[in-house]
C-alpha cells in the first residue's frame, strides 16, 4: 500500500483510494470479511484505518444498546464523546489520566477507564455506561444495592464504582469480601466510603442473583 503525496506535509498518513470521511464505515464491512474467511493471512489485508488531527471522522458507536453515528477527532477520548457529544454525563471525569476510576465503563462487558480509551478504539464494541444499567426508570440491581447500603457520599465517584462492581459481578457473581476489595481497588473514593461500598457490592451480588432467578 502506497502513501500518496498530499497537502498535509511530512508525517501525514493520508491513504490513497479511500476518502478520509468514509473509511471507518468501509472498514466495518472489510473487518466482517476477515471474520468470515477465518484467518487473517488468507484474506486480502484491509487498508489501515486513518484519521487526521483536528479532522473529525465518522464513528459508529454502540452505547447501551443504541447505535450512535458521531464525528470524532483522533484525540477525543471515549469519556469525552460519551459526555460532551452524546450527553451521557453519568460517566464522570476525575483525573483523565487513569488514576481514579470515576470514568469506568464496560467495554464488551469488561470494566475499563473511558478516559484512557480513544473513542476510535471503541469502534465495533458495546459500551455500557451507568445509564445503561437502568431498566427504564427503575434502578438496576447494582445501583439499588448502592442506595440501600449507602455506598457513597458525594456521589461523584459512584457511577464509576457501580460500573466497576457490575464488571466484577459479571466475571464473579458471588465474590468473597477479599475478592470485592480487590475488584473495587481501581476506583478511588475520596469521601472514603469504602466500607459501605464493599457492603453494596455484597448486596448487589444478592440482588442480581435474585433478579436472575
Amino acid at each position: 500500500m502506497d502513501d500518496h503525496p498530499c497537502k498535509h506535509g511530512d508525517g501525514c498518513t493520508c491513504h490513497s483510494g479511500v476518502s478520509r470521511r468514509g473509511f471507518l464505515g468501509s472498514i466495518t464491512t472489510a473487518a466482517a470479511g476477515i471474520a468470515a474467511s477465518g484467518t487473517l493471512t488468507a484474506a486480502p489485508a484491509p487498508p489501515p484505518e486513518k484519521a487526521q488531527p483536528d479532522e473529525p471522522v465518522k464513528l459508529q458507536l454502540s452505547v447501551n444498546g443504541r447505535t450512535h453515528k458521531v464525528l470524532v477527532e483522533p484525540r477525543w477520548t471515549l469519556l469525552y464523546v460519551l459526555r460532551d457529544q452524546l450527553g451521557l454525563t453519568g460517566t464522570k471525569p476525575g483525573c483523565e489520566r487513569g488514576e481514579c476510576g470515576a470514568c469506568t465503563v464496560l467495554i464488551d462487558g469488561v470494566a475499563r477507564y473511558s478516559c484512557l480509551t480513544l473513542a476510535l478504539e471503541a469502534k465495533g464494541k458495546e459500551v455500557t455506561t451507568i445509564e445503561g444499567l437502568m431498566k427504564g426508570e427503575e434502578l438496576g440491581a447494582t445501583q439499588r444495592a448502592f442506595v440501600e447500603e449507602d455506598g457513597y457520599q458525594c456521589g461523584y465517584c459512584t457511577p464509576g464504582q457501580v460500573m466497576a462492581a457490575e464488571g466484577l459481578l459479571r466475571v464473579n457473581p458471588r465474590p468473597s469480601m477479599e475478592e470485592i476489595r480487590h475488584g473495587m481497588s481501581g476506583n478511588l473514593c475520596r469521601c472514603g466510603a469504602y466500607v459501605h461500598i464493599f457492603k453494596s457490592v455484597e448486596k448487589a451480588a444478592v440482588l442480581s442473583a435474585s433478579e436472575k432467578r
Binding site: T91, P93, D150, G155, V162
Partner: peptide, 19 residues
C-alpha cells in the same frame, strides 16, 4: 435511612456542575 437523593446519585441523573 437511605439517602433521599440516592436514585439521582446512582442513576447518573444527578447533574454535577462539571456535567
Amino acid at each position: 435511612v437511605p439517602r433521599v437523593d440516592g436514585y439521582d446519585r446512582v442513576s447518573g441523573s444527578a447533574v454535577y456542575p462539571r456535567d
